[in-house]
Design a protein around this nucleic acid. Structure first.
Lengths: 238, 238
DNA sequence: ATTATTCTCGTACTGTGTACGAGAATAATG
DNA sequence: CATTATTCTCGTACACAGTACGAGAATAAT
């Protein structure tokens, strides 16, 4: 027969992924699980980055043959969706709300950032991709509830959440790039030398000044909080 | 000999890429140019997406053998850096400033967004990567100048610019994903059906309401402007 | 003319995602 | 019980990726 399903019953529709599958009561029993495969992939990405997540690596990590993975996810893209939704499950979708929507929304932002820092591959994976798995939707539900006191209509609340997510994703993506660069001192030194050379060429006076400024140490956390607060405090509910 | 240089003189240092190269007055003359190769890669990415940019495709587009590209860029990552800096050259780094830094900074944000919309692969490429080519630095210089009236010190101005860029990148990345989804009506319909099913399950009342709300048409442009204004108006210069 | 240098690019290697299909395991059917 | 339909596993194979290697072509200095 022609691959009709599998434990994951991957269909033609992308969304079919998330729909509860009719459990087959016939045929060979699955030796693995979508969950186990997803966890293996996430673990790999956390430890060695997204580019370490190859079907072969994941399969060997989980003790399966490579092609067996395709019974659980139609393709690698789908596996990525599974990974995204899986880690989104770490977001507490039922945290109590204070009733002050600004406070609650800031908490949402901080939760998202913390998740992305735990899984540094997330910003890049989420960019230019929309994953609507159960965990993502559960947290969306939570965020929409937090926004209820604003009095905004549903569409507007949806928009605010999307924008918040986009902001956090962009911010943390950059934060991660910074941290990665700082992790290899020689590369960092080379960059510093290069920038110093650019600053010294006379055509970049602003940059020169910015680099010569005494860089008081700022934690990324503080920077994020500051900008998040600005964004959220600036929201109005007219 | 062991690949000592080439037209691009790719060295060990990543930054060496951007440093002016001593033009060799010996040996065979280059048949192509870094510029031409970069343009070909950008054109390809614009038309068919980043995944269409393979060394073989770029080479054939430019009429070169595949391995010849490696004389102009050490590896594909470097080619990506070249692409990013190249399109950054479209940003007018010498636009006149009004002197009102909020107005000027908003203009900067709009310029960045426009660039990313023209080159939809940009947000994904920029995420988790730092490219410091001449065009990027020229625009940075421009943005820092725009921020001068704030009275912020150099480091703070640098930070504001980084945050702005991160915000725009995150926003436009999401905007592009939306647009891409909307481009294939069947996929969009499938998603709508799926979301309706989720909304109907009773456990997502907020989502159900959001989806049922009469979606007055909002242009992405207006949304972006709104959030950008909030972010920038919220900035203070204490 | 010789030689050093700098480029071009065919060949080949490793690693990728995944189509195909043979075979193993299970449940329903006679 | 044997048969059969179903559902899974996974070895093999293929196209295509990035790129190391190195032989040869073109150019400038000697």
């Amino acid at each position: 027969m022609t691959r009709a399903g599998g434990p994951g019953a991957p269909g033609v529709d992308p969304q079919e992924l998330w729909l509860a599958r009719a459990q087959p009561r016939r045929g060979r029993r699955p030796a693995f699980s979508r969950e186990a495969i997803t966890v293996a992939a996430v673990t790999l990405a956390d430890a060695e980055g997204l580019e370490a997540v190859t079907m072969r690596r994941v399969a060997s990590e989980v003790g399966a043959g490579v092609m067996s993975l395709y019974s659980y996810a139609r393709d690698k893209e789908t596996l990525l969706d599974l990974m995204i939704d899986h880690v989104s499950g770490e977001l507490p979708a039922d945290a109590p709300l204070t009733g002050d929507w600004r406070t609650d929304l800031k908490a949402v932002g901080h939760l998202q950032r913390a998740l992305m820092l735990r899984h540094p591959w997330l910003p890049a994976a989420v960019s230019a991709r929309r994953t609507l798995g159960p965990n993502v939707l559960a947290f969306l539900e939570h965020a929409l509830a937090a926004l209820r006191p604003t009095g905004l209509d549903g569409a507007a609340r949806l928009e605010v959440f999307s924008q918040l997510t986009a902001f956090v994703s962009g911010h943390v993506g950059y934060e991660i790039a910074q941290a990665a660069a700082a992790r290899s001192p020689d590369r960092l030194a080379a960059e510093a030398r290069y920038l110093a050379a650019v600053a010294a060429d006379g055509r970049h006076p602003e940059l020169a000044e910015a680099l010569s400024a005494p860089g008081r140490p700022v934690t990324p956390e503080a920077t994020f909080t500051r900008f998040l607060n600005r964004l959220i405090d600036g929201l109005d509910t007219d």
